[in-house]
Design a protein around this nucleic acid. Structure first.
Lengths: 243, 243
DNA sequence: TCCCCATCTTTACATCGTAAAGATGGAATA
DNA sequence: TATTCCATCTTTACGATGTAAAGATGGGGA
């Protein structure tokens, strides 16, 4: 009945025929040299190791390949090990998304600091936004694949909240006004929604290949970044910006 | 080995203990009265019935519940029947997304016709866009869940292409210029990308619950539609529209 | 020193997608 | 009209996945 499980785990076992013995043999190196990334098998940093393994699997095999068992395989542990640390698949994905949001926030912050001119500063955020998504499409995909996430998890909630706060602050700075945390005017809300919708929409359409059509019809060699820039800076002709 | 399959299919069989006999018994009603939706089991409109069943399952159980076997169950056929009509899960999802795009295009067209004032006409499209997504969140989710779709399927490709053409034409009309099919100026591309990104981004953020934060901080009882309107019509303050 | 319990492994099972072979019956053909 | 053919649907089978539950293991406190 458990044929497939037995077989797949036997394959792993082939690398370490007698598990207890081999594990015990490799264990002494664990904290001897203070290298905490060394064989974090039994005690130690399995949780972090699993998150790193998950990120590797995600970048290598995409969202479709990111399964609990694949992550366990990548980390070299039994397929049920992740359950103990994350509860279920939603738990792992949520923690991984939190990692993504933290990376994302860091990228935004450092890119804003690097800007010099006013125009450069205004464009730095959206450019960094899209650049992160292009560099880590899998991560970005997870971060906004809401139906598989649990936003009630503190780590995810906080990281996503920080991301939103950064956006709101940037808008406030551009409008030369303070944006308070608890109340917004209609104009402020509209400005935030517009900025976020525009950049997030552009990013998802880009990652989904939906903009290829437009890019192919533009002057030879126009990049997505160039289109984004035009989209954000070009004067708005016609009666309304909406379609 | 096939215990679970046998059991679940046996449950279905309980409704029709001896399959050939019962099917033969219910078959006469099939085309007798010309009602083509009557027991389209063996020959007939199984393909359409499966698509309708899929839409039902999607609206009832969401994306997570939309499996080949669930659709087959909903349609009252064996779990392998869908495979013959759609090849695999990607095939079914793609055809269902095509149905969605056609519904979507129809909704857009009829809503544009109903508009009277210039402002109303400019807002009709984005409003209809968001309204469709809110009324059919599962469908909209599928239509833009690219990793599970096969855009090389003619029906999906055509329906999605028509949707894009409608958008481009609307933008062209607003800019009072003809948008040719094969080439775009940077301004035109930017206008299309801006409009599409804005509305698509707003929609996905809204469906993902990401705008709750903003809506909750706006004046009491502000709806998503009202926010969308402000977003599209409010003057842009600050140096740039970008975040 | 010994025992507890967090951590990890084993085992088990329902469900899913998919492949392949077997039935069934309408329609073309003789 | 009788027979064969083949598209359509069903059965059976298998590997993979998520998850629950019980069994090992070993570090750290009693």
């Amino acid at each position: 009945m458990a044929k497939t499980d037995t077989k797949s785990e036997t394959a792993r076992g082939a690398r370490a025929p007698k598990r207890p013995t081999s594990v015990a043999a490799s264990r002494p190196a664990r904290r001897a040299a203070g290298a905490k990334t060394e064989t974090p098998y039994h005690h130690g940093a399995l949780r972090e190791a699993l998150l790193q393994a998950a990120e590797r699997v995600l970048e290598r095999d995409g969202l479709g390949g990111l399964t609990l068992r694949a992550v366990a395989r990548e980390a070299g542990v039994s397929h049920a090990a992740p359950t103990h640390h994350f509860g279920d698949l939603t738990g792992l994905l949520s923690e991984l998304a939190a990692v993504g949001f933290r990376q994302f926030n860091a990228a935004m912050a450092s890119s804003c600091d690097a800007a010099t001119t006013p125009l450069g500063r205004a464009l730095a955020r959206p450019k960094a936004y899209v650049a992160y998504a292009q560099a880590h499409p899998g991560m970005y995909g997870i971060m906004f694949r809401t139906e598989r996430l649990d936003y009630s998890r503190p780590s995810l909630h906080e990281a996503a909240e920080a991301s939103f706060a950064g956006l709101a602050n940037a808008i406030g700075a551009m409008r030369q006004e303070q944006i308070s945390g608890d109340a917004l005017t209609m104009e402020q809300g509209a400005a935030i929604a517009r900025a976020w919708s525009m950049v997030h929409g552009f990013t998802t359409l880009l990652l989904d290949g939906r903009l290829e059509d437009i890019l192919g019809r533009l002057p030879e060699g126009t990049t997505a970044e160039r289109l984004l820039e035009s989209m954000l800076t070009a004067p708005i002709s016609g009666k309304l910006p909406g379609p």
